[in-house]
């Protein structure tokens, strides 16, 4: 009983977790964004499942039909889908800029590049101070 009534939600949870795993574990920024998409889309699937009514029709009023799916989750998810694509496009634009600035879209390489630069800056500063002392 429990399984037949809830299996739907459990699969959706599995989907969400695959998405979340990709966001956290993947080092490639584009893959992270794809993961974020999966995560969000799965939450949408959950919402739409909440609105499901057994035997309910699509929420467009027709003569002679009495049972409809709940329209409210649909409305919320329409908004959420738009928010999702807005986030995705901004994130991808950021990735393009990061590619231009760092020459890589791998998290590890970007961080390595940062550390390298910080060490360089430190060295330059020390050299400058040394020169000042000589003067």
């Amino acid at each position: 009983m429990l399984i037949t009534s809830l299996y739907n939600y459990w699969i959706v949870i599995a989907l969400m977790m695959i998405g979340l795993y990709m966001v956290v574990a993947q080092g490639n920024l584009i893959k992270k964004i794809i993961g974020l998409n999966i995560f969000q889309t799965s939450v949408f699937i959950f919402y739409i499942s909440v609105g499901k009514v057994d035997g309910g029709a699509a929420p467009i009023l027709i003569e002679g039909e009495n049972v409809y799916s709940n329209p409210l989750p649909h409305v919320l998810i329409l908004t959420a889908i738009v928010v999702g694509i807005a986030t995705t496009s901004l994130a991808l634009a950021l990735v393009i800029r990061i590619m231009r600035a760092y020459g890589s879209v791998e998290e590890r390489e970007i961080q390595a590049e940062e550390e390298k630069r910080e060490i360089q800056a430190e060295q330059e500063k020390r050299e400058m101070q040394a020169e000042e002392v000589q003067c």
Partner: peptide, 17 residues
């Protein structure tokens, strides 16, 4: 600074989660 891009991306990921 180019690091602003990286910071914005990290914030975007955390914020969206």
């Amino acid at each position: 600074d180019r690091r602003s891009l990286w910071a914005a991306f990290q914030y975007l990921i955390m914020g969206t989660i």
